[in-house]
Design a binder for these strands. Structure first.
Lengths: 226, 226
DNA sequence: TGCAAAATGATAGTAATACTATTAAGTTTG
DNA sequence: CAAACTTAATAGTATTACTATCATTTTGCA
């Protein structure tokens, strides 16, 4: 809610969409119902035709907003990382010690979506689940280099860079700050996934969260790299 | 080569295939040429029809070995993790100190495929690239719980558990051994991917490898958790 | 208010995908 | 050498991932 109010410009790369879905009622419905539908049936089974039926509109209308469902997923991903970035920037803004800033930063990029985080048409809790289950698929394609060049992953990389910078504030000589940041951000999604599906290879459960694990990890690294 | 000789039974869950591809010339051709074709055009564009043409056989013949391309990818993944497990088991077998065992284990699960690792019909170097680009897709489906129950990810989870055990040998009281192991194994694939496509968010490049990063990481963790 | 432009909805059509079924030909092996 | 099995070839179906066209509705601004 606050997020939307303070971010009228979401800053999503405009090559991702044909027509900005935030500018019309139908567009918002497409976003909202896509999230519900992808969460229900999975991204593979999700089609624009099924979405069209669900929103009592038409396949062809959806195609006027997004070229294909991959672009729509890129849009949702950008929205999600934009939301993380917002919370990251404001979360650390008033903190003075590097240690506090790092602790909050790691918490924000690894924690569960809180229940209250529901903006008008985007259910962030469901969106986070979609990101956990699908974000890697936006990367793992033959077209990834082209799409990186087009700036489709800019917001995501900016989030990683912000975390990297905060790590370096704490340990200026640590030589693997970028890899540690990307490992934590991507790894947290993976740990959430394992917690839901493959408990035997994660230490995370109802008592221990990915955030606990990564806070401990970063603490161990920093103590060795002051 | 040695791997194939010492592993006549690859131990791949037999619900993954309809007919074991290792038992016929056509089956081996399917594996070999699938690896080449997926590497060339990507898993999304890869179809059994294209494969059929390429091996001068027929779509319908391929379907007698695998229900669909997802199962084939599961097969290739199992083959890969089986190969990692083999190297892991033999790599640490004669090492007496926990420290050495851990160092070698982390190296094996994070390093590049060496050029020499080419068995008869499987080019392990290409296979590794396919795993980097596609392994997460085998997980990220609506059917994952069912497939885990069917044992399709058994070899992978066994690899993670072996790494977990070796971590615990070194730090018996460390509370996040499973998560650390899964973060390293999955994260190493991701770091290899970033090194190839998104250098700005990884510290890995031609001088620094994912192995360097994770060896340093595990060293930091252990020094804090003796 | 009224008309032009824009947005949406409905239908149809195409090429490719992901299969299944059938049958014929070739190969193996007991 | 015949039965059993494997493979090859063809055809066919339902679904997907679009594109094109046109009619209808909504809007925005003169």
């Amino acid at each position: 809610m606050r997020f939307i109010l303070l971010n009228p410009k979401l800053n999503i790369n405009d090559k991702i969409f044909l027509k900005d879905p935030e500018t019309s009622a139908l567009g918002k419905k497409i976003l909202q119902q896509s999230i519900l539908l992808i969460d229900e049936i999975g991204f593979e089974a999700y089609t624009f035709k099924k979405l069209g039926e669900r929103i009592e509109s038409n396949e062809s209308s959806v195609y006027r907003y997004f070229e294909n469902k991959h672009k729509l997923l890129l849009y949702l991903s950008s929205w999600y990382w934009s939301w993380v970035e917002y919370r990251l920037v404001f979360g650390v803004a008033n903190l003075t010690t590097p240690q506090d800033r790092l602790k909050i930063a790691i918490t924000i990029v690894t924690e569960d979506a809180a229940e209250a985080d529901i903006s008008e048409h985007i259910d962030v809790r469901l969106l986070k689940r979609i990101i956990i289950n699908n974000f890697m698929k936006t990367f793992l394609t033959k077209e990834v280099d082209e799409e990186i060049r087009s700036g489709f992953f800019q917001i995501y990389t900016r989030v990683i860079q912000r975390v990297t910078d905060i790590i370096l504030e704490n340990a200026p000589k640590y030589p693997y700050a970028e890899s540690l940041a990307s490992t934590i951000v991507e790894g947290a999604l993976h740990q959430h996934f394992l917690k839901d599906h493959l408990q035997s290879i994660t230490s995370c459960n109802s008592c221990t969260s990915p955030t606990d694990f990564y806070l401990s990890l970063i603490d161990n690294v920093l103590k060795q790299n002051v």
